[in-house]
Design a protein around this nucleic acid. Structure first.
Lengths: 188, 188
DNA sequence: TAAAAAAGTGCAACGACTTAACTTTTTCAT
DNA sequence: ATGAAAAAGTTAAGTCGTTGCACTTTTTTA
């Protein structure tokens, strides 16, 4: 990797680091893009050369989450249903207290700021098409089968649904129970 | 109703009318709030005294849709399941070509503009709590039962899911089939 | 009927984001 | 090596959504 790309990656990292520090410190709305730029010692226009929006400064890691989702569907243990595999994965990654100390503050920041909540949801739902394709392939259904797409959409939506509810774990379990067995099985 | 309230309602209506006309004419992003204000012959500040945001200029009718949702659940015919009743209602109101000529242009505008799509979804999902409560009451479940809340969330989400798919009707039917009978019944 | 409360309006400003012109640095073909 | 193309950064100016403050008008109340 040449010096040019290294420098570019360096300033990008410096921006992301400064943004995370400032946002955690003062809150998202109390920090301007100029503040972030100044903390990283670049001009404000440079910020937007690296990130498409202020929100994007916080969501820098995104590529491996989609791969993990697809792997969960394809490499699930023999005999385990797809909704169940997705439920386990969702509980594992989106439930409270994963042990990571910094992660808890990050989650609290994103959930308490409307703009970040919305942006995070949009980023998360972008994986819908890839997940739907993985489900379709795992079941032998056609590539764009609506049933598989619906399962993908709803499975991803469970994390938005759980957000704001008192008991997140219980909410996720109830949502996946509905997806697995249907309303006719449990409800009246 | 006093003169003051009449004038207030008049300028509000003038703003909504001007906004609709301009947005349909030029597109949402090609019209500034200043343009709308000028067309209604008020200052831009006045616009935000009447509407909380630029997007809100388009979404002025909202109160009766929640009532309709709740009525669908409570007054459904004997023996009809709740998901089925919601499916019929969704197909009736959110499927293409309801006959209204101006409505089609409105729908096309909102679906082709990201900001409007997002805003419309948020407005629509605000009914989640009320719908969940109606479902809980209809089934005798506790007020904040997670299963009922999940059904409410997913049922409302079907319209976002159908958006952008080639066949909206098929998408809605597939989504409600999943909610009614579960993945274990249909998909392998 | 005077005074206080409330509501409508506009000017100026802030923050996110864009565009355009220009400088500096890195790359790469010669 | 060297000179030109390409890319990263800076500055400056501007657009657009949105808000705070000051001012006027209308309505209510003492």
């Amino acid at each position: 990797m040449g010096r040019r790309e290294r420098k570019k990656a360096a300033t990008r990292q410096a921006l992301a680091d400064a943004a995370l520090r400032l946002f955690l410190d003062r809150g998202f709305d109390q920090v301007s893009v100029r503040d972030v730029a100044e903390a990283a010692d670049v001009s404000t226009t440079t910020v937007f050369k690296h990130f498409p929006s202020k929100e994007a400064l916080l969501f820098d890691q995104d590529s491996d989450r989609e791969a993990a989702l697809i792997a969960v569907v394809r490499d699930r243990p023999e005999g385990m249903s797809i909704p169940r595999a997705l439920r386990e994965h969702t509980l594992r990654t989106h439930s409270a207290g994963t042990g990571d100390p910094g992660m808890a503050r990050f989650v609290e920041l994103t959930e308490s700021t409307p703009a970040l909540r919305e942006y995070g949801r949009r980023m998360w739902m972008r994986h819908e098409a890839a997940l739907a394709a993985a489900i379709a392939e795992a079941t032998g259904a056609p590539e764009d089968d609506p049933g598989c797409a619906a399962l993908a959409h709803f499975a991803l939506e469970t994390v938005s649904f759980a957000r704001g509810r008192a008991d997140a774990r219980q909410a996720i379990e109830a949502a996946f129970a509905l997806l697995e067995h249907g309303w006719s099985a449990a409800g009246q």
